[in-house]
Design a protein around this nucleic acid. Structure first.
Ligand code: SF4
Length: 449
RNA sequence: GGCGGC
DNA sequence: GCCGCCAACATA
């Protein structure tokens, strides 16, 4: 419809698939209030996925999450309206999330994650139709062909750490020049000019397409919005869009508290994926010894507060460990007060800021202490071992050690961050909580590629 | 961990 | 032996 400057066209894939590609704008024969209701429902889904990602949930957990969220929010009493709701809600949210770089990025990631999950559920024919829409000329590998290639395919699969399971035998072929990265990385078997691409790889490629299309569309929408739509829809859509913008369901830093909550259940996953080495080490020692000395409790405790662990959860978390060592009653007596105090609930009621890198680096841990900065306070041997556990490749380890020798501990930490996440960190690391939130950003957008 | 109170 | 109170400080 010309409101969005798109032409209305039939969705080819509609006939067999319920997963739209959102390439054409929706017809507007919907009650105005439904625009908003639909959009809010979809927002709940995206927000839920976003939360799941930032809690370090694994891909299959995200799948389940997406499934539940979709079921819970995107129903419609009339079956025929389900697809409509899907499309309308998507386009309304485009208007809401097109306006800034950050909003676009968030929306893009969440929509892509959602798409990826839904794509996998489609039938083989529907998937092919969708791929055709994206000009991905893939051909399914027949059973007999698969059998004859089985050994070769299995070998490649094993070499990239994803051995074939009897259940998952879906492969596609494509002219090998279509997938240069996969070929270059030897992640696919190539035979007679054709690359044999596994289903999960196909999903990634399709998702990438989806992502890039949507990304461009969002930029376009942004322009149209500011230039014409906002004015044109002054009495209809615009108020709705504006209301949704300030909605409490927004992404990231718009809602510092509510959004960032971390629960005890997924704290281990998050520690693995996003804690800087100093905190990771404290965390592991705590789990191992069920105890930390004062300096460690301080450093880790405030950090966790900064990460979004609420007071009650913090108390439960520390108690669960400490009581194994000193007993619950002694925990209540000797440690609980101090935790509440750190959260600003006792005495002067100051909500203390977590320690910075400088503070940590200049601390002087004694024997039996586990706080401090590993780059500064670990022996070379221990540091190497620790970096190995974070799966930093040996090339990067040497770079890190080099910085350490020159006493550039924060730079060493930054290099570690970059090696672990495969992203550059131009800002540099100067606060553990900054490391954390920077890491979360990467983890979030990475999963949905 | 430090300081302080009984 | 019982207990209270304190420290911190990045940041888009
Ligand atoms: S540089 Fe900062 S964040 Fe990194 S380990 Fe040292 S103290 Fe922790």
């Amino acid at each position: 419809m010309e409101i969005y400057g798109y032409q209305r066209k039939a969705l080819h894939s509609d006939a067999i698939s319920t997963l739209p590609l959102y390439r054409s704008a929706p017809p507007l024969d919907v009650r105005l209030e439904d625009f908003e209701l639909f959009a809010i429902d979809r927002l709940r889904v995206l927000k839920g996925i976003s939360d799941g990602l930032s809690r370090g949930k694994k891909p299959e957990e995200i799948d389940n999450l997406a499934k539940d969220l979709w079921k819970a929010n995107m129903r419609h009493p009339e079956a025929s309206e389900v697809v409509n709701k899907d499309i309308i809600s998507h386009f309304v949210l485009r208007l809401v999330y097109c306006r800034t770089e950050d909003l676009r990025k968030w929306f893009l990631s969440m929509e892509t994650a959602l798409f990826r999950y839904r794509f996998r559920l489609e039938s083989a024919e529907a998937q092919r139709a969708l791929m055709a829409e994206f000009d991905l000329p893939y051909k399914a590998v027949s059973n007999s062909e698969f059998e004859s290639m089985k050994d070769n395919l299995g070998q490649v699969a094993r070499s990239i750490g994803q051995p074939l399971t009897p259940a998952d035998t879906k492969f596609y072929t494509v002219p090998f020049e279509e997938v240069p990265e996969l070929v270059a990385g030897r992640r696919v078997f190539v035979h007679k000019g054709h690359a044999y691409v596994a289903m999960n790889q196909v999903v990634s490629l399709v998702a990438t397409q989806f992502r890039s299309h949507l990304s461009k569309a969002l930029i376009l929408t942004n322009r149209k919005w500011t230039s014409s739509i906002r004015e044109q829809e002054k009495d209809r859509l615009t108020p709705i869009v504006e209301a949704l913008c300030t909605s409490y369901l927004g992404p990231d830093y718009s809602e510092p508290r509510e959004f960032a909550e971390i629960s005890i259940r997924d704290i281990d996953q998050i520690a693995m994926s996003s804690f800087p080495l100093c905190m990771r080490h404290l965390f592991e020692k705590l789990r191992e010894d069920h105890h930390l000395k004062h300096g460690g409790r301080m450093q880790l405790g405030l950090f966790l507060k900064g990460v979004g662990l609420k007071l009650d959860d913090a108390l439960a978390f520390w108690k669960a460990e400490f009581s194994q060592k000193v007993g619950a009653e002694r925990f209540d007596k000797e440690y609980a007060y101090s935790i509440r105090h750190n959260y600003g609930r006792e005495g002067k009621r100051t909500d203390y800021t977590p320690f910075s890198c400088q503070k940590i680096i200049s601390s002087t841990p004694g024997v039996g202490d586990h706080h401090g900065c590993p780059y500064r306070h670990f022996s070379e041997e221990n540091l190497r071992a620790a970096l190995g556990k974070m799966r930093v490749n040996s090339r990067a380890v040497e770079d890190v050690m080099d910085k350490v020798r020159n006493r550039h501990y924060q730079l060493a930490c930054t290099l570690t961050f970059e090696a672990v996440h495969g992203t550059s960190c131009d800002a540099g690391i100067n606060h553990p909580n900054q490391y954390f939130s920077e890491s979360q950003k990467v983890v979030q957008s990475k999963v949905s590629i």
